[in-house]
């Protein structure tokens, strides 16, 4: 599939960022202050806001039943015009309307698949890191196995076993990134576990669950957030890749990756069919990466001026 960004690609500094005592609200504010000064990151944030805006108000911009999925076979593969801002696709559907509605699915797949991966991977990583020993060994070896199995096999397996729909697609994309989140979280937890404030919590009789979820997890969040932002980008690319091999979203629902992959045979005859979804994917991913990089810088104490 596409490039994967794993824990190993994060500088040690990010992991170290979490070692410095518990984060308070004010510290997040400080991160935001730092982020605000990073023009590239803010640029990314603005673009992402626009994308989110499009997703939220998609129905006001174009009606789903009468525009987005309505076929108009006499207007097939028309170039951009006043009527169709981005032209029409092979069924004469309005590409602009589909792009706007496509933001919903693409964002949802991106964000939710990462959320699933973080929840499962994060929990496994936290448990492994916190308890250590044999449990740690077992969990991490299983993660190694999942990491070694090609994501495409996992994706095809899930889609063919559970059926192709939005949820399974997200699951398919999530599964292959679970091990990398497990690694990141485990690394942070390892560094936190013997810190004084954890000892203190333990001393006052807090349960393991409470310690993990109230004290350790919030403090291990920083690297996860950074990786998550990049992960959303990877997930959007993976969706396009899965569509390319025929395992994308269920038609006629619009989704950028499926639009890009589906339009590839028209590349030379109707450039607009692939160009707009391609650009949308590129710009969104660019924005996510810029924001991710900005967050990483902002969270890294040693890079601060």
């Amino acid at each position: 599939m596409s490039q994967q960004i794993t824990a190993d690609t994060l500088p040690e500094a990010v992991l170290e960022a979490t070692r410095s005592a518990p984060k308070k609200r004010s510290q997040w504010l400080e991160v935001w202050q730092h982020l605000k000064r990073n023009k590239m990151a803010m640029f990314g944030l603005v673009i992402l806001s626009l994308v989110v805006f499009a997703a939220v108000f998609a129905d006001l911009i174009a009606d789903y039943e009468t525009v987005v999925i309505a076929q108009n076979l006499s207007d097939r593969l028309q170039g951009p015009s006043a009527q169709y801002w981005m032209g029409t696709d092979e069924f004469g559907r309005d590409i602009f309307a589909r792009m706007i509605h496509g933001t919903r699915v693409s964002l949802m797949v991106g964000v939710l698949s990462v959320a699933i991966a973080i929840m499962i991977g994060g929990t496994l990583g936290a448990v492994a890191g916190y308890y250590g020993g044999r449990l740690d060994n077992i969990i991490m070896r299983v993660m190694d196995i999942f990491l070694a199995v090609p994501s495409i096999l996992l994706a095809i397996a899930i889609v063919s076993a559970l059926g192709a729909n939005l949820i399974n697609l997200m699951l398919a994309i999530a599964v292959s990134s679970i091990p990398s989140y497990a690694r990141v979280v485990r690394a942070s937890v390892l560094s936190l576990r013997d810190q004084e404030f954890i000892e203190a919590a333990r001393a006052i009789g807090a349960s393991d669950t409470r310690i993990i979820f109230r004290h350790i997890v919030p403090n291990a969040l920083a690297p996860v957030i950074v990786q998550g932002a990049l992960g959303v980008a990877t997930a959007i690319l993976s969706t396009a890749g899965l569509s390319f091999i025929g395992l994308g979203i269920q038609p006629p629902e619009p989704e950028w990756g499926a639009m890009l992959a589906g339009g590839r045979q028209y590349l030379r005859h109707a450039w607009h069919v692939t160009t707009f979804p391609g650009l949308a994917i590129m710009i969104t991913i660019l924005a996510l990466n810029l924001l991710g990089d900005g967050l990483r810088d902002a969270l890294d104490p040693r890079l601060k001026h």
């Binding site: 590239m40 890749g241 391609g278």
Partner: peptide
Amino acid sequence: SMVVALLGVSMPNFW
């Protein structure tokens, strides 16, 4: 250069 580099990761390979 960062933007150009990032465009590299942002483009689906098949495209």
